[in-house]
Amino acid sequence: MQIPYEVTARPDTGVNNAKLGIWLFLASEVMLFGGLFAAYVFLRIGADAWPGMMVYGTEMMAERADEILNVPLATLNTMILIASSVTMVMSWAALKMDRFDRYKLYMGLTILLALGFLVVKAFEYGDKFDHHWYASTNNFLGIYFVLTGLHAIHVTGGIVLNAYFWGPGTKLWKRGTPRDKAHFTNRIEVAGLYWHFVDLVWIFLFPMIYLI
């Protein structure tokens, strides 16, 4: 049995199944992060001080986010993610031009950059813990950890996905028929859409939490 439009686009909708699927999935992701962003706004509006008390039961207050968070590191991470989005597109473009070696290179770079993002993130978290700043310290740090944590989980998911397509997933391409190649290229496009979304979430997160 063959499911229609697995590889080719349906003429009247102009997309194949996987591409429509990823767009719908991303719509639900928008609602997920949207819910958390809304919670952020709701909590901040209701707060007496933001970020607020830094040690439970004391007068130690933080006035601005950048007293607590490391803006230069986060800026670096923004760059890393944007760069990884670019390499992701290039890996897809390489497949379009039938350059499998290039694909391996760019996809590998994408994965490395994403790992780099997580390493920087780990340093950031470690720094907070060294100061005894935890999610329970105040709602600013709470939402910071939840939002960036959920984002980091998405990054990790992306790494797993991309690593699969870098390694074992390439079997599909190597089968070599035009249909298989087109199928594989579609998959990379879909993975790319997901990856750009993860990037985009960060681009909203960064100013919202670190800057304003």
Binding site: S28, G34, G35, A39, L150
Partner: peptide, 25 residues
């Protein structure tokens, strides 16, 4: 289901954080 459930998932994560990480959302 696609669009209404995720905000509850977000709320669920926040309540889990309240219960497990000691946040005060």
């Amino acid at each position: 289901l696609l669009l209404a459930f995720p905000p509850l998932e977000a709320a669920g994560f926040l309540q889990l954080a309240d219960r497990l990480l000691g946040t005060s959302f």
